[in-house]
């Protein structure tokens, strides 16, 4: 049956070879992310959290299974090719990485504008949205700074603004506070949850931190590439 609800992973597996040794990172994962909800992916290192995020965010294709959005197959058999996945990622998904990478030759404002412009927004509109988002993440006066002068927390806020500029349906965050000290990390998390809720996007976080997971609407636990059970209010689709 074609999944027509939210953003859905259907039987997703992911394997690859490492020095000729097959590594099975994900096994038949079924998950659905609904707009406005926050989902925490938990599990030890190597449990497949990052791989799950990458497949769900269309950064890697699944070895089997598929990724769907509102009845449209995005990845897997019948899904988009690399260009199509990139275009969907650009317009409908946001991704926040723990090391808050930036284009260092661009200002924070230009970093935020970048996906918007490539998604087809007029330059003026992209600037307007970027300025508004930077205001919302508390970096209103930082738009023209050199990104190298920003702290880790500030850079992660820029990354949050950048992830939201195209109005994504899902924002993926891979341990977004792992590289930040606890205070700054807490502020960034507050911001992330708040902005995701405001924008109506689903927020999917990979984390080791139970305190972070506790703030999510739902916690999904992974072990050895399998969803082993819900620990939050709602569990994974079975």
């Amino acid at each position: 049956m074609t999944p027509d609800r939210g953003y859905t992973l259907r039987g997703v597996s992911r394997s690859y070879l490492l020095d000729a040794v097959p590594v099975h990172a994900l096994h038949g994962v079924d998950l659905t992310f609904d707009g406005g909800e926050a989902i925490a992916l938990m599990g030890p290192s190597g449990s497949g959290k990052s791989t799950l995020l990458h497949v769900a965010a269309l950064l890697e294709p699944p070895s089997s299974g598929s990724v769907w959005y509102l009845g449209r197959c995005l990845a897997g058999p019948g899904g988009f090719d690399d260009n199509g996945r990139s275009s969907f990622r650009l317009r409908r998904l946001g991704f926040i990485h723990q090391t808050y990478p930036m284009i260092v030759s661009l200002t924070p404002l230009q970093n935020v504008m970048l996906p918007g412009e490539y998604a087809g927004l007029a330059r003026g509109e992209a600037r307007k949205r970027a300025e508004s988002l930077l205001d919302r993440v508390g970096l209103g006066g930082f738009g023209d700074r050199d990104v190298r002068t920003l702290s880790g927390g500030e850079r992660q806020r820029v990354a949050i603004a950048r992830a939201l500029i195209t109005g994504p349906v899902v924002v993926f965050a891979d341990e977004p506070t792992a590289a930040l000290d606890p205070d700054i990390g807490g502020q960034v998390l507050d911001l992330l949850f708040e902005q995701a809720r405001q924008s109506g996007a689903a927020l999917v976080l990979a984390t080791h931190d139970p305190r972070v997971a506790a703030r999510a609407d739902r916690v999904v636990e992974l072990r050895a590439g399998r969803v082993v059970g819900p620990t939050g209010p709602t569990g994974p689709l079975s």
Partner: peptide, 16 residues
Amino acid sequence: RAEIALLRVVGLRRRD
């Protein structure tokens, strides 16, 4: 390399 990866993550196509 990291910036390029970021551009791809953001959604730029290979040709972009």
